[in-house]
Design a protein around this nucleic acid. Structure first.
Lengths: 315, 315
DNA sequence: CGGACAACATAACCTGCTGTTATGAAACTG
DNA sequence: CAGTTTCATAACAGCAGGTTATGTTGTCCG
């Protein structure tokens, strides 16, 4: 005999609330509905669930035993509802975030850590890639969110782009680097020092080349290339090398007092760092929540940068 | 959000059977039914339960989490079905048995003990009473089964009576009683000994009076009266008293070798020991099972009595 | 690469359950 | 014993689930 789990729920509610009327009320149903459904259950199993002729309806042994199972059903149902609620509010789920390596390591990973303090049940799968990879990932559904520097006109129609910071690069070096003692750094000064280059296929590498040619530094020697942000920072702090990094990344590292930026304005790439998401379809709530969290953090970051710039020489 | 526990069951089955088709088969439903129901669940919660475009349907994290709860629902449902199955087969439930004290203590209680070896989940509530009480109890639903000596014509129309033994009484005494050495006991012999009388309102007491007057024992002295069978047996075995007991009760006590019957025929009451049950309505399965068990044991008892009588002097 | 197969989705229809309100019967209360 | 509470019944509307038949789409394999 297969019986309807909803009937067991009804039974449990009625037994636990000490009456049909109150049980029905607790379930948000009308009293006749519950009465009839339980009558049907009773007819199905061919045995009385309630002692006949008692006005505050009282269960038989069989009724109590089945109500026990009904409680289990109710518990599971509530747990399921809770899971769904967490998911729908974005407090649970999976977000697959992709981004350019330097931003991910230097800025986003820290924000994700903060985010997971508030939403520990959101799993974040992080991956690295450049614009094309990320756009493809978002297109075929293997990625939920991308953090990528992009020219707004290069955004495909099927995606939406939310700019969060202007693409501002600086020349970075270790704290205590000889050039940091100069009030003003000239293009000629930097020619002496070796350079750390980002991976050759990265946009940052193109930025570096452009920045250096812009300021007239025709030839420069590359002492280290490739590697993730951690490697770059290690080499940077262990030598007098220079490199090009996004302003935000250097800014985020201020507290460590290991890396700083030279007082030398370089050309800005005409891109914005932004958040890229699929448009049109429904957005998974956890993705939406992480997106707005990151956006808010960047907004705060932008304000801190502005406040900082009013007291600093950096340009 | 309240979601249907049946949907969770479907989800669990599909996840656990590795596919929609097999899951549907395992539930005894058609594949389109399950497909549509799960689609509905998905629409309700507004989130994908399955990874899109995978042919052996594969659940998302959310789907797996909900399937977990579905398993709990399935488990409770199966447990409930099991409870009902036990009840319906008479292997679980409650039987309220009433009967005359001497029969209950001397014969029925032992049979109930045997019955509960086979059906440990059947609870038996035993009570004592005489014919009128028992009939009333059966009538108003406070009793399921009565074991009572009754004249068949006195059975109310709303009840059914199943005779199981002729109402046969004997004069009982302790093993080793002086009268047991006599080959033949005469009415005169028994006049010397004191009598133990059952409670004055019991049918057995009437039997005793009638038996004694039948055999011409006009005056007899009563040394002990009232008390349950245990008291009677204690007094009987501790003295040379005599009493009247149903044959079956004395017969059941043979193994203890404490009580026996005199070789003196006394009048038989025109009643049958039988099982009394409500007629018409549906019989609780546990009651039916206990009834048939007791009836079978009495049948066996009757055969043993017949076999014994061919080798004994008792009449 | 393309065809065969399997797995899932959709369509159309019907049955049955659940929900509602209104109302009646029965039991508990003082 | 009357009032009140509690449950059962009636009548009806609507939806969800069951079915079979039939598309559509991954997957597998030569």
């Amino acid at each position: 005999m297969k019986l309807d789990p909803r009937h067991l729920e009804l039974l449990a509610a009625v037994v636990d609330h000490g009456g049909l009327t109150e049980g029905a009320a607790a379930l948000g149903k009308s009293q006749p509905s519950v009465s009839r459904s339980l009558g049907q259950l009773e007819a199905r199993i061919g045995a009385p669930l309630f002692q006949p002729g008692r006005r505050p309806l009282q269960a038989t042994d069989l009724g109590l035993a089945l109500a026990e199972q009904g409680r289990a059903v109710l518990k599971a149902d509530r747990a399921a509802s809770q899971i769904v609620a967490l998911y729908r509010s974005g407090h649970a789920g999976l977000v697959r975030v992709g981004g350019t390596p330097v931003f991910m390591d230097g800025v986003i990973a820290g924000m994700i850590a903060e985010f997971q303090q508030a939403c520990p049940d959101v799993r974040v799968d992080q991956s690295y890639g450049y614009a094309d990879d990320l756009i493809e990932g978002l297109g075929n559904g293997t990625l939920d969110l991308a953090v990528v520097p992009l020219r707004p006109e290069k955004v495909p129609a099927s995606l939406q782009f939310q700019p969060i910071l202007p693409g501002l690069n600086v020349i970075a070096c270790r704290v205590g680097h000889p050039l940091t003692r100069r009030k003003l750094v000239t293009p000629g000064d930097i020619a002496e020092f070796p350079w750390i280059a980002p991976p050759a296929n990265s946009p940052l590498y193109a930025d570096l080349r452009r920045a250096l040619t812009d300021i007239g530094a025709e030839d420069f020697k590359i002492s280290f290339s490739g590697g993730s942000l951690a490697s770059v920072i290690s080499v940077l702090t262990g030598s007098d090398s220079l490199t090009v990094l996004p302003y935000s990344v250097v800014f985020m590292m201020r507290p460590q007092k290991t890396v700083t930026a030279l007082s030398l304005r370089i050309g800005h790439p005409d891109r914005n760092l932004g958040l890229l998401m699929a448009a049109g379809g429904p957005v998974p709530p956890a993705t939406a929540r992480l997106r707005s969290f990151v956006a808010a953090r960047f907004e705060a970051l932008a304000r801190r940068i502005v406040a900082h710039q009013t007291n600093q020489l950096w340009r």
